[in-house]
Design a protein around this nucleic acid. Structure first.
Lengths: 338, 338
DNA sequence: ATGAAAGCGCTAACAC
DNA sequence: GTGTTAGCGCTTTCAT
């Protein structure tokens, strides 16, 4: 049996033509080089018959483009990122690009290693939701077209697309305050990431604008995981403070928080209200349905791809902050109507 | 400014050495070729100073291995697959492999196209959750090491790792029956995929074993989406049958079903019971907490990677069916204790 | 209308 | 201990 893979050279030998001619036909340049119709047909048929597939590795080496985009994400099992990956995959496929996917598990070291890998693979571009704690490695590879998604560094010249986290968090906090909550805990995600910092900033600003004492609020938590939501909430509840509401800064945190509240035999929203950043498909089915701040995930993905391709075409970098939206359900009660 | 990327050749010229020597040092073969310590040190320092990163494309072409694994999945936004992707990413990274990710959106055509892409990219192996309707393309590329996950074709010599869907569905149905349900609807996923067929088979077998009339049951639905769960349940409820329980064959279907039930003003489990295949992190928080059949996602990923690497090492293919587990929560009531 | 030859960056067989 | 050379499969200048 023959090798299952046939090359241009073999095809050429078979047809008694030069590799050049075969290559020309097969890359759709028959007209351009005025290959005779007969030859063109011949080559095409042989290619089909032998199921010729170009060796992209060889092609890439020669052409210096790989039609591959690196997608660097902190946690693909977080539905926010999974949904983002989905829309990005759809868009990139339309444009004929394949995705090299890496999950950094929120480790800057892994992210740094990842960048070296992607650079070595000569990806045409990178879409990265950086861990967000360090950025030297982004800087170092910033000669390759890159756009940051969700998290970013405004000091870098690399463009980004993200939610307006500040405004979103402000609206959420304002909503809580309008429902007469004043003793509020904010469970944050990965400290020092821009998305977290902006959400915290929005929270603080609303607290301040409405004249709530900073003694009455608490900001705690350490990352975007379910465990963090769970453990932090357990601690919060043990403090036996007169906490009336919790604002979780991510969908996974919300799950953990709800679980802890439930295990403590408390009811949402009767005993404690909760609002969360980052809406998810099932939040209308939780007990109770969760009031959230929805991020425009599809739009983030779309814009990120668009901007990346502009960049690859040599056009100007451009950043976007997209608006979030309050989705009111029933996890927040009016604190005065007890 | 210099080009940001330096090659072995340039490094060699800089140091007045041959590319060979530089290559030998840089691929860690200095000892093997008895390069002098001085030279080795020299090369390593220059490489570091110039931030040399090997061009993997060139390397791949020469070595005929890419350290890249194709991951082909029907829907990365389905948490089942996202979680699978996560564990697979972790394992593959440990082994120094990168992932080319493609989402087929349950389209056989896209999957077929994907395989050509991956073949062209010369991936070292493929991990695929096939759409499951056609398999000629799997056959055609079966010379590349490949293992099927979740869905499979038993007629192919390609190994697979999946849940024991038959047994899992049997247990779920039995559970319903033991709770005295007899008018049961089963909302299925993508018809004709093996995982769906096996689940349906398990359902039917239990129905038969317990002597329930086939008139009392209904099997409907068309794919694994939320929409399918929603629309099918709407239809089911409109039929005003005396349906007492629904068995959904996937986590997304369950979301849709619960939403429809809720919108119809019905209560779970008082008015209708529900059990679902495929547990998810948040199912203890839905209203009510959902009784499910949990698949061993991490184990599936681990085994799939292990078997793939065995295959790549020329060892025997080996398939696995892993046990599912009933997670009892409170979405099923005892039908007799009304 | 077609072909010969060079080269992308790397590695390895074979020299010395 | 180190270098020369060839070649992975492809595209493209230059030649005819």
């Amino acid at each position: 049996m023959n090798s299952p893979v046939i090359t241009i050279k073999e095809l050429a030998r078979l047809l008694d033509l030069s590799p050049t001619t075969v290559s020309r036909v097969l890359s759709g340049n028959a007209k351009k080089y005025r290959i005779s119709d007969a030859t063109e047909k011949l080559v095409k048929e042989a290619a089909k018959q032998h199921q010729y597939q170009p060796n992209q590795i060889a092609r890439n080496l020669r052409l210096k483009e790989t039609n591959t985009i690196g997608l660097v994400i902190p946690d693909i099992s977080n539905p926010f990122f999974a949904n983002l990956a989905r829309i990005i995959e759809i868009e990139l496929r339309k444009l004929g690009k394949l995705i090299l996917l890496t999950d950094t598990h929120d480790s800057s070291d892994l992210e740094c290693e990842t960048f070296k890998f992607l650079f070595g693979r000569k990806v045409d571009g990178i879409l990265v939701a950086p861990v967000g704690l360090r950025c030297e490695h982004l800087q170092r590879f910033s000669h390759i077209p890159m756009v940051m998604i969700d998290r970013y560094f405004s000091e870098l010249s690399v463009p980004y697309v993200s939610t307006d986290n500040y405004a979103g968090a402000y609206v959420a906090t304002e909503y809580l305050i309008n429902k007469n909550h004043s003793r509020i805990a904010c469970i944050q995600g990965l400290v020092n990431t821009i998305s977290n910092k902006e959400r915290v900033r929005g929270f603080r600003k609303a607290i301040k604008d409405y004249g709530i004492s900073s003694e009455d609020i608490e900001i705690c938590g350490r990352d975007f995981s379910i465990e963090n939501g769970y453990q932090t909430t357990q601690k919060l509840l043990k403090q036996a403070s007169s906490l009336t509401a919790i604002f979780t800064l991510g969908n996974q945190i919300a799950i953990g928080a709800m679980r802890a509240i439930k295990e403590n035999g408390l009811k949402i929203p009767e005993d404690i209200s909760i609002i969360s950043f980052d809406d998810q498909a099932y939040f209308d089915l939780t007990c109770p349905p969760l009031t959230t701040i929805r991020q425009p995930i599809d739009l983030i993905g779309l814009e990120a791809v668009r901007i990346l391709f502009n960049l690859m075409d040599g056009r100007q970098p451009e950043s976007k902050l997209l608006p979030a939206k309050l989705i009111e359900r029933s996890s927040v009660k009016d604190c005065n109507s007890v």
